[in-house]
């Protein structure tokens, strides 16, 4: 079910601005890969090319190749909608649908696609997804209340529940814990541990400990200078990156000796 990702010679543009240049990377199936690097180096941008969300921004385009489970994402006959059903995403800022209740938010992926689902299946799916996102106990009494009425951290877990409810094969997470307290963060990290049994997970994080705790592999992105494109500096097993990285820049960033 889970799929690996192969990226080769990927250049990512916003109109004429080259944001990320020359990425080559292999992301293993059923594992967690962390993307780290200074702000503005293009982690979010790169992540969004893995489910073709990048092109949603007007003028944004991509050169190069992204293969998911042996299929090329950017071939002309690929339907981006199908790609996004296979590759789910959790955003940096929680974004539940304001017109929907908690229950409807979790089911959004199913309902918005007008799939038929029986009431009992729907209930089961909602419970399973909310359990998975470690939110069930907090909201089970008020499933029909608006999703916007939750706290920021609860909203983020609601968004995780919504993403896993459509059962994607790959899950992209852009700083999913930046709005969470330590307890919710550790809940999400536990969740990531469970999810990697079934899913391939790519997570962007600014928290080195988090990268060290949850990931098998870590990729370090960096900017040569402001205005220059971001580049993949090094990708290695997390243990190696955090002990004996190949590159000096990685070492400097991780140990905090970074400008």
């Amino acid at each position: 079910m889970a799929k690996s990702i192969d990226v080769s010679d990927l250049n990512i543009y916003y109109s004429d601005f080259l944001a990320v240049e020359g990425v080559n990377m292999t992301i293993k199936a059923r594992s967690v890969t962390a993307l780290i690097g200074p702000s503005g180096c293009g982690k979010s941008t790169f992540l969004r090319t893995l489910n073709r969300m990048h092109e949603v921004i007007p003028g944004a385009r991509v050169e190069g190749k992204v293969m998911v489970g042996g299929q090329s994402l950017y071939d002309s006959d690929v339907d981006p909608v199908e790609v996004r059903r296979m590759v789910g995403m959790v955003f940096q800022r929680p974004n539940p649908f304001p017109t929907m209740s908690i229950y409807e938010n979790v089911l959004a992926g199913v309902r918005l696609n007008s799939k038929r689902i029986s009431k009992s299946d729907a209930d089961a799916l909602v419970e399973k997804s909310l359990q998975g996102a470690n939110l069930w106990n907090e909201v089970k009494e008020r499933l029909n209340k608006p999703g916007m009425g939750l706290s920021g951290g609860q909203q983020q877990r609601l968004c995780i529940a919504r993403a896993i409810a459509v059962e994607p094969e790959i899950l992209l997470m852009d700083e999913p814990c930046s709005a969470l307290d330590p307890i919710s963060t550790s809940a999400v990290e536990d969740l990531i541990h469970e999810l990697k049994e079934q899913y391939t997970i790519v997570i962007v994080t600014h928290n080195m400990q988090q990268a060290a705790r949850v990931s098998e592999d870590t990729a370090f992105f960096n900017l040569a200078a402001t205005g220059k494109p971001g580049k993949l500096i090094e990708m290695n097993p997390t243990k190696k990156i955090f002990s004996v990285p190949d590159e000096e820049a990685t070492e400097a960033y991780i140990s905090g000796r970074f400008g």
């Binding site: 800022r93 649908f97 992926g109 968004c159």
Partner: peptide, 29 residues
């Protein structure tokens, strides 16, 4: 309507027209 909501919907594999019909227009209703 914040573009976050459109993106949230696209990321669930919802086609654009359905996103407009079921997310964007109801939010602005």
């Amino acid at each position: 309507v914040p573009s976050d909501l459109r993106e949230a919907s696209y990321a669930l594999g919802v086609p654009k027209w359905r996103t407009i019909l079921k997310v964007v227009v109801p939010t602005a209703m």
